[in-house]
Simulated assay, not measured.
Amino acid sequence: MTVADSSSGVLHVPPGEGLVKWMSGDILTFKATGAETGGSLAFLEVVVPPGGGPVAHLHPHSDEAFFLIDGALEFLDGDRTFVAEPGSFVYVPRNHRHRFKNLEKTDARMVFLFTPAGPEDLFLEGADDPIPGQRPGNWTPERFARLAPIVERTGDIMVPEL
C-alpha cells in the first residue's frame, strides 16, 4: 500500500511505504515519481539480490545518482569498473554508459534518483507487480525484449557489454 501525502505541496512517504515493483530480480520501491514531483526528479529505494542489476545503458535526458546503504555493487563507468560500498555516492551524468551489478552473496540496498524524472517510467510500466510471500526471479532475454517499446519511448539506450 502506498501512502503519500502531497496535499500541502510537500511529498511525504513514510518508512516502508511506496509503490513496489520487481524488475529482473531487483525490488524497487518508488518514494517519488515524476508525476508526484512535477517532473523534477524520481527517487527509489532498491534491493539488488546477488547477481542482480541492469544491463549497461545510458539516459540521454536525465542524470542519475546512487547512494549505497548496504552490501557492495560493481559499477560500470564507460569501460572501467569500480566497487561501491556502504556510504558510497555515485553520480552518473546523462549520456554516460553505466550499470551496477551485485557480485556479493547477500542483497545490496541503495537509493537512487533521476533528475529530471522520466526514466522511472520504464520501471512503472514494464516491471512486474510483487507476489506476496515470494521474491522476484531473474528475467529471461524474452522478458527483457518486452521492454523494447517502453525503452524506445523513454529514450533510454541499452549498450550491453561485449
Rank of each mutant, 00 (worst) to 15 (best):
T2M: 12
V3T: 15
V3D: 11
A4I: 11
S6A: 14
G9S: 12
L11P: 04
G16L: 13
G16E: 09
L19T: 12
V20M: 08
K21L: 09
W22M: 15
M23R: 09
M23S: 15
M23F: 15
D26Y: 00
T29P: 14
F30Y: 11
K31R: 13
A32D: 05
T33D: 10
T33C: 13
T33V: 07
E36A: 10
G39I: 10
G39P: 12
S40D: 07
L41D: 07
L41E: 04
A42L: 02
A42C: 01
F43A: 00
F43P: 03
V46A: 14
V47Q: 13
P49M: 04
P49R: 07
P49K: 09
P50C: 09
P50D: 10
G52S: 09
G53A: 11
P54G: 07
P54V: 14
P54K: 08
V55R: 14
A56F: 14
H57S: 11
H57N: 09
L58T: 02
H59N: 11
H59S: 10
P60Y: 08
S62H: 12
D63N: 14
A65K: 02
A65G: 13
F66K: 07
F67R: 00
L68G: 06
I69F: 10
G71C: 06
A72D: 02
E74G: 02
F75Y: 13
F75N: 08
D77P: 06
G78T: 09
D79M: 04
R80L: 08
T81R: 13
T81C: 08
F82K: 00
A84W: 03
E85K: 14
P86Q: 05
G87I: 05
S88H: 03
N95A: 11
N95V: 05
N95Q: 12
H96F: 12
H96Q: 13
H96N: 09
R97E: 02
F100R: 00
K101C: 10
K101H: 11
N102Y: 01
N102F: 00
L103M: 10
E104W: 02
T106K: 05
D107E: 14
A108G: 05
V111Y: 13
V111L: 10
V111R: 04
V111F: 15
F112Y: 09
F114P: 10
F114M: 07
T115M: 14
P116N: 08
A117D: 04
A117H: 02
P119N: 05
E120H: 01
L122Q: 00
F123A: 05
L124E: 09
L124C: 01
E125M: 12
E125Q: 15
G126T: 03
G126P: 00
D128V: 02
D129I: 00
I131M: 02
P132L: 12
G133F: 08
G133C: 11
Q134S: 15
N138D: 10
W139K: 11
T140K: 03
T140N: 01
P141Y: 06
P141R: 00
E142M: 06
F144C: 03
A145H: 03
A145T: 00
A145G: 01
A145M: 01
A145P: 08
P149C: 02
P149Q: 05
V151Q: 05
E152M: 04
R153Q: 11
T154G: 06
D156V: 15
D156E: 15
M158W: 11
V159K: 14
P160C: 06
E161H: 04
